[in-house]
Every structure is written in C-alpha cells, then in structure tokens.
Amino acid sequence: MRFEDLDKITDRMRKVMSLREGSSQAKITVHMGTCGLSAGARKIMKALIQCADETATKDVIFSTSACAGLCSREPMITIELAGQAPVKYVDLTEEKAKRIFSEHIVNGKIVAEYALAIGSEQTL
C-alpha cells in the first residue's frame, strides 16, 4: 500500500459512499406507482442504471417514489442536479432515458423536448 492507493480505493468506492451518505451531484427518481410500473418504469430504471455503469458515472444516486399524480404520462422520472431545480421527464422509453442520461446527467444539458416541467416540487 502506498499513499496514493488510498485515493484509488476512495475513487473506486465513491459511488457506494455517495449513495450511503445520501449526497451526490445528481439524483434520479423513478416514479414507481402502479401506473408507472405497468407503463414500464422498471425497464427505465434498469436502462438508467446500465448507463451509470457503462459511463462509470459515480456521483449519481437513484431513488424510487410512488405515483406522481400524472398517470397518463408515465413512465416518468425526476432529475435533480445539485443546486438546480428538479426536472420531470414524461412518456419515457428506454431510448429516451438513455439520451436524457448522457445529455442531462453527464453533460448537464436539459433535454427540453422530453421535459414536462422545470422547477416542480423538491424532493431532495
């Protein structure tokens, strides 16, 4: 073990630890009410997790919540970047979710064409 190895281990564990501490740069909430589930929320979740793994994005945490009250527009997710208003995305497919991940989470640009509203209720 050298001094630098502590940094390597910390870096490798960052994802686990930001999840444990509940603090991170980005939080994705997948709405998993009955409506969301039947519209395919679980597939969306899986696709997003896969994106996080593939791009080795460490500073993102996932959360689930119940029905957001807009059942006709499910599957739906909310993305919150630290210090910014949350953004809700609706009528999602796995493809759309992947694009949102790479543009919004990785590059910080909101995908306006899929967004429902910016600045809805806070959950963080």
């Binding site: 502590l6 281990i9 910390t10 490798r12 564990m13 960052r14 686990v16 630890m17 444990r20 501490e21």
Partner: peptide, 18 residues
C-alpha cells in the same frame, strides 16, 4: 451505521487511514 465494518475499503472511502 454507514459502513460495513467487515470491509476495510468502506472505512478507507470514508477517510480512513488518512
């Protein structure tokens, strides 16, 4: 309550051995 005490890497990731 934050780390698995049986995993040294979790201790290190929380600033351990620094």
């Amino acid at each position: 309550g934050l780390i698995d005490p049986e995993n040294i890497e979790e201790y290190i990731a929380r600033g351990g051995y620094r």
